[in-house]
Simulated assay, not measured.
Amino acid sequence: MPLFNKKDTEPDHMPPPGLPLLALELRAPWEFGAVLPAWPVLQRAPLGDGHAVIVFPGLTAGDATTVPLRRYLESRNYETLGWGQGLNLGPREGVLDNAKRQLQAAYDASGGKVSLVGWSLGGIYARELAKEMPELVRCVMTLGTPFAGPHTSTNAWRIYQFASGRSVEREAESYNLPEAPPVPTSSIYSRSDGVVAWRGSIQAPARHNPHTENIEVVASHFGIGLNPSAWWAVADRLSQPQGPGVVWQPFQRPQLPGMHLIFPDPHR
């Protein structure tokens, strides 16, 4: 059964999450609190090869919010970087150009392709950078990023317009947001997201890039970047080897007890 059909993506059929889900966003601190008891399991995620990873924060957030995720990835043998542009207030003048320069600098310094991880709005940057500079990007991962639905499918679009001073509808018209980058791309999402309609984070099958996937976790929007299950998924995706003859593999639940509850079947 498909995750959605064309009718689901029309504005009238993709409303933002309702008040019950929005109220559940208060669980975000408990998601981060789960990191400590989950740490022994998180350390069983595959080790990386040391390549560079840039992590982009969500709307009105800064690099401080991605420190926990970046420290975890460093423990799995990655060189991590924040985006280094203060609070994310939207793609104002110079923001995307600075992001391109950072990506080029990270590629030059590391001597290899760079992975991009983006939380919410930060995932839009990651995807668009990978479209413009695919030769520098190894893979893209987004966390609760609304790229597949209308702007009214989120509870944050008014905040975006206030923070950026731009029309979100006009901004979206400048990009083909649903189109996946031409590199391996994973969308990590939650059906209990209280800010973004979960269908707005679903990648349709990509004809020109079969290396796209959707990974469901149980998380809030404000907590997905601090959620142990999302961390595991990010570490797993980053660890995939690259090179001649290497075949990309989609995400598989870890073979540990209870994983069907932590990583639900997205096709259910």
Rank of each mutant, 00 (worst) to 15 (best):
P68N: 12
K131F: 14
R158V: 07
L69C: 10
A197Q: 13
G118M: 10
D63F: 06
L116S: 05
R70H: 06
G149C: 13
V67E: 14
V55S: 12
R138I: 13
T185P: 03
S174E: 13
N176R: 11
E179I: 05
G112A: 15
A126I: 03
T66C: 09
E128G: 00
P181Q: 00
P150W: 09
V67K: 06
Y107R: 14
G90S: 08
V168I: 15
Y189N: 00
V183W: 02
E135I: 03
T80K: 06
T152M: 00
Y78P: 00
L89W: 07
V67H: 04
E74L: 06
P182I: 07
E132A: 15
D63P: 05
S75G: 15
G94V: 01
A106G: 08
M141G: 14
Y160Q: 07
P150K: 03
A172D: 12
T60V: 15
A197P: 10
A126T: 08
P91A: 07
T152N: 03
Y160P: 01
Q85F: 01
A105Y: 13
G149F: 06
Q102H: 11
E93F: 07
D63K: 01
F147L: 08
V195H: 01
Q161L: 02
E74W: 13
S192E: 15
V183E: 08
E179H: 10
T145D: 09
Y189L: 01
T60Q: 11
Y107G: 13
G94A: 06
E79F: 11
P91G: 12
G82V: 03
M141Q: 15
V168T: 03
L121A: 02
S187I: 04
G94N: 08
R170E: 15
Q161Y: 08
I54F: 02
Y160A: 04
D63Q: 07
P134Q: 08
D97K: 10
G149T: 09
S120V: 11
G86L: 11
P178C: 05
G194V: 03
R127S: 06
S167V: 03
S192L: 14
P150N: 10
A180K: 06
P150V: 04
F56W: 02
V140N: 10
Q102Y: 10
G165M: 04
W83P: 06
I188E: 11
R92N: 10
A99C: 14
F162M: 14
W83S: 02
G194P: 11
G84A: 10
G194A: 01
Y107W: 15
L73M: 08
P182R: 03
I54E: 00
G123W: 10
A106I: 05
L81I: 15
A130P: 00
Y160E: 04
